[in-house]
């Protein structure tokens, strides 16, 4: 399954809830304000690092750049994708769940 998260992990429980429901082999794509979860050295960033491998993590590059974050400031192991990569992820997974 592909999970997308578009809310800041510091503002709502969406990120925590999604991670609690992501099964082994699932992919999680962070978009819009969801990309803030990818910042290294934060609680959400540490959770990504810990779960990486079991779950694959992706972040939408244009949303990262818009918010002034650099790819280098992101949690280890997270992959940056563009809009085409977003489409590929959707195509690769039979089910997509948008965590709002």
């Amino acid at each position: 399954m592909l999970h997308t998260i578009n809310k800041s992990p510091f503002e709502t429980s969406t990120f925590a809830s999604c991670l609690g429901h992501a099964a082994a082999g699932d992919a999680v794509l962070l978009i819009e304000d969801g990309v803030y979860a990818a910042i290294a050295d934060t609680e959400p960033g540490k959770q990504i690092k810990a779960k990486n491998g079991t779950v694959s993590f992706y972040v939408l590059g244009p949303d990262v750049a818009a918010r002034g974050l650099t790819n280098g400031s992101l949690a280890e192991g997270i992959q940056v994708v563009d809009y085409a990569g977003f489409v590929d992820l959707v195509a690769e997974h039979e089910v997509a769940q948008a965590w709002l």
Binding site: E11, D33, Y36, D63, A65, A66, R67, G68, L69
Partner: peptide, 23 residues
């Protein structure tokens, strides 16, 4: 405070999301 601190983060570049960069 809270997520408001993200408003004044430097280096914002919104070209890729089609929104105005008001920073």
């Amino acid at each position: 405070l809270d997520d408001g601190v993200f408003q004044i983060v430097k280096g914002q570049d919104t070209a890729g999301i089609g929104m105005k960069n008001f920073s």
